[in-house]
Simulated scan of single mutants.
Amino acid sequence: MDKTYASAGAALEGLLFDGMTMAAGGFGLCGIPELLIDAIKAAGTKDITIASNNCGVDDFGLGVLLKTRQIKKMISSYVGENAEFMRQYLSGELELEFNPQGTLAERMRAGGAGIPGFYTATGVGTVIAEGKDVKVFNGREYILETGIVADVSIVKAWKADPSGNLIFRKTARNFNVPAATCGKVCVAEVEEIVPLGSLDPDHIHLPGIYVHRIVQGQHEKRIEQRTTRKKEQA
């Protein structure tokens, strides 16, 4: 089955609706589905709840959807590097559900595995635990966290074959795998589509059964914070 589409907009056609829940891969600006994000902006979809480690920066990544006020709620573990995120949250314009990073990754993984909830010690005794069920196992308290199931997942991969088998490159693998699995429909943008059968099965990070649509494109690959050393004097 060939799952390739001609453009990011075409790959998202028929999937977007106001008030939807979305899971997005990426960590900072590494491995983010930038083309799909731009296509969502162009579609004008509103009141989106997005589960993602962070929300990009002010003018790139998910940050562009904040700027256009298309995001209603973020489920995230880190909100730094984005002044508009801070402004909208502090002014009450944006809902925010904080999750410890490992908990967020496991909530996505659990949702993709069909697990409705799990208990974790992370967050016990903090505001994270407020309103959540608490149980004691072996003398230690754990809180109940629920799995995330999104209407659509958007992810970024390095290579794909036409059936949707994906390979991620190094740290760009990050949240992309759990985000991909927890979507009812997963759309992946990739740098390269290779012929069917050319990927070593042992090198595939995400089987095509989880991926419904793929699109190839050119990517900007920004560096979130560039740190350089002063030139040494001869």
Rank of each mutant, 00 (worst) to 15 (best):
Y78A: 01
V152H: 03
I71L: 13
D161P: 10
I209A: 11
G183I: 00
L66V: 07
A24N: 05
D38Q: 15
N99K: 12
A10G: 01
G111V: 08
F17K: 12
F98S: 09
P195K: 02
L166A: 05
G63I: 08
A160W: 01
F27T: 07
D151Q: 06
G147C: 06
H203K: 15
E220A: 05
E220L: 00
C182K: 04
A42K: 13
V215T: 11
P116E: 15
V124K: 07
S76W: 07
V64F: 03
A150V: 03
G14H: 11
V136Y: 00
S76Y: 10
Q70S: 07
A10M: 05
T49L: 14
F85M: 08
F17Y: 11
K221T: 09
R229W: 15
Y210Q: 03
R229Q: 11
D200M: 10
S91T: 12
A11Q: 00
I193A: 08
A150D: 01
E189V: 07
G111C: 14
N82P: 04
R222W: 00
A83C: 11
D200S: 14
A180F: 08
Q225N: 13
S163M: 11
L166N: 02
K231D: 10
A160V: 02
G31F: 06
G147M: 05
N99Y: 14
N165E: 09
F137S: 04
E97N: 11
Y89E: 09
L94K: 06
P162D: 09
E84L: 15
Y210G: 02
A8T: 04
H205Y: 06
D47T: 01
A160K: 02
I143S: 07
T181P: 00
E220K: 06
G25S: 04
D18Q: 06
I37W: 06
E224D: 11
F175G: 04
K156F: 10
K41N: 13
I32M: 04
K184H: 10
I223G: 01
P178H: 04
